[in-house]
Amino acid sequence: MNISSERLFDLSGRVALVTGSGQGMGLGIVRALATQGARVIINDYYAERAESSAKALQAEGLQVCAAPGDITVPHIREQIIATARETFGEIDILVNNAGVPPGMPESLRQFKDLEDKDFEQQLDLNLRAILGLTRLVVDGMCERQFGRIVIISSESWRVGLSYGLSNYAAAKAAALGFMRQLSHEVGRSGVTANALSLGCMNNFGYDETAKATTAVGRAGTPEDVGAAVAFLASAEASWMTGQVLALNGGSVTA
């Protein structure tokens, strides 16, 4: 394709929804997309967090708004999409970042100690919410011949660990399977679907682990994630779809 933008990864005129983005990696994604010119909706389970983050970024001159709510609830998902459309217009970029339910990581337990509700909680957030939100926006993306679906995943789907992540990793892996199938269904309509698989990040105190296990010797940051998502959301990434990009500092290189 011919790249006509004066700057790479220009998102001017695009509208993005980032789930679970009131803090941490999600907020880093919001900042990166808004800095590149997108109008961004900040969703978070906690309303105060979404609204305070929106106010802070608005004070910096970035075009953002808050649309808090629990994305595991179908009618709440519809309300969030309606708010986004009323405020900024049709959604061009959906970043499925929310992935850590309340109580995690303190609630991590070995598989033998898990109950059915523990799997349902992870499936609700890390699979069903992604399916539901995508269903609400993908037809419009196809009609407009542009769309970006991005899933923020975890290297726990790829690498076995002893931390008690079986339910979390299972839901993450299921979402990646969906992403690959979706990419083939909508690719010729100008819509891409990709995922970032994150390694040790600095939001859960994994800094020391990252120093010992990554090639670069540090944990990942919101800025790292935001930069990668800005690329995947851009016109320049139109030939990348159905992919899982490892963003892990070199902790896994195969």
Rank of each mutant, 00 (worst) to 15 (best):
Q79P: 00
I80E: 00
I81Q: 07
T83W: 02
R85S: 07
E86W: 00
T87K: 13
F88M: 08
F88E: 03
F88W: 03
G89V: 02
I91A: 02
D92N: 12
A98Y: 01
V100N: 07
P101D: 03
P101N: 04
P101W: 05
P102D: 08
G103V: 09
E106H: 13
S107C: 06
K112Y: 11
D113T: 05
D113Q: 14
F119I: 03
Q122I: 05
D124L: 11
N126T: 03
R128K: 15
A129H: 00
T134I: 10
T134W: 08
L136K: 13
V137W: 03
V137Y: 04
V138E: 03
M141T: 12
C142S: 09
Q145E: 10
I149T: 10
V150G: 09
I151Y: 15
E155A: 11
S156L: 11
L161P: 00
L165T: 12
S166D: 11
A171V: 07
A173P: 10
L176P: 11
R180A: 14
Q181H: 13
S183C: 09
H184L: 11
R188D: 12
T192K: 04
A193M: 01
N194I: 07
A195H: 04
S197I: 05
C200D: 05
M201Y: 04
N202I: 00
N203T: 14
F204G: 00
Y206S: 10
Y206A: 13
D207R: 09
E208P: 06
T209S: 07
A212S: 12
T213W: 00
T213A: 06
T214G: 00
T214K: 00
A215D: 02
A215R: 04
V216H: 01
